[in-house]
Design a protein around this nucleic acid. Structure first.
Lengths: 191, 191
DNA sequence: GACACCGTGTTGGATATTCAACAAACAGTT
DNA sequence: AACTGTTTGTTGAATATCCAACACGGTGTC
């Protein structure tokens, strides 16, 4: 079941993924042909078809892989312990750095308007399942609160990416933690 | 005879080459094992042996490929026309930029003491065959002159690489052309 | 409508690579 | 010398990829 993936397959999938992301940063998916994708990846077209049914399938699989990674990060720490929560955010940001080009491209609303929403749903679902039961608030209130927090965090991360990641993951996770826990009240402390 | 090389072979050879250069920048070739080379390249060891007899053979082929590229550059222009000569130098320097890591590693005397000498011999041979007949000087004198010019040029290029290529290929080729044609007399012009 | 061109989905055979395994050689330790 | 661990060179079978070719659908031009 957990068979190790043959290295040839790994390579093929990786270059196809990278090539699609590269093309997506220049043009819309509907204007991309499988032919040019395979030329860019230097992979035979029939090989592409042994892995994917079309380039939309490839994009779906890229996003699903990211979704699974995100879930893994969210699951790997006790979310209710602030230090662990911050460490998780930092690790997640480091992961984003490693895949900067991918996130830059996919979070661009002109490329795939659904990706950001999809990531938000995962994060929000997680927050609802793991944190809200402890918080014991009204469910409707909790949903709005988690929407607020997750939207905030995602848009801060998008800004960070567009600022070419000018702060370190540690600094960013510290900031996001403060925004999450204290909102605007941290502004008051400095006056 | 000039069969197109199967893309799989191209890939295999490329990653093996890159991995050897990478390892060579950290350790001597005698301390590198084929096993670790293949691990780094993510290539099966038996595949390595279908292409090369050992890692010394791989290094030899890398250097031979560079030698051929150098010969191609040297041959592609009329060397006796100064503007063409400068353009050739510029193109050669652009090639060196694209393969910066390779040249940085191989021109390091601790890595392969023979590489620089090999490149010098090619350049000098070319100079002797293509320029000296026109110059009609005494052969011994011409040999010393070509030694002077080629040694100078190669060491300027080495410095340039070690200064992280701080001048553009165009600027460098201009400079090398002046050193070649005028030696120290260009210093006098500025006083 | 006819034609040319392009991309697609597919096919079959060839080829390169993978993997696991083996025997042998080598190096280090006791 | 015996033992252990590592690397090497090799082998055979399986697998993934390659390549060329084909039929088809879509688009644009005359």
């Amino acid at each position: 079941m957990s068979q190790k993936l043959d290295r040839r397959k790994k390579y093929t999938r990786r270059v196809l993924k990278e090539s699609l992301i590269s093309l997506l940063s220049e043009k819309s998916i509907s204007s991309i042909t499988v032919k040019e994708l395979c030329e860019k990846a230097d992979i035979n077209r029939s090989t592409f078809y042994t892995h994917y049914s079309d380039h939309y399938d490839l994009l779906e699989q890229i996003e699903e892989e990211i979704a699974q990674d995100l879930r893994a990060y969210l699951s790997s720490y006790q979310f209710t312990i602030e230090e662990e929560s911050k460490l998780m955010t930092q690790k997640l940001l480091e992961y984003i750095i490693e895949n900067k080009h991918t996130f830059q491209t996919l979070l661009n609303q002109n490329v795939d308007p659904t990706f950001e929403k999809r990531m938000m749903n995962i994060a929000q679902q997680f927050l609802m399942n793991n944190w809200m039961p402890i918080n014991k608030g009204d469910e409707s209130y909790n949903r709005y609160l988690s929407t607020f927090i997750v939207s905030g965090a995602i848009n801060v991360i998008k800004d960070w990416i567009n600022q070419d990641m000018n702060q370190s993951p540690k600094e960013m996770s510290e900031m996001i933690s403060q925004f999450t826990n204290n909102g605007l009240s941290i502004m008051g402390e400095n006056r």
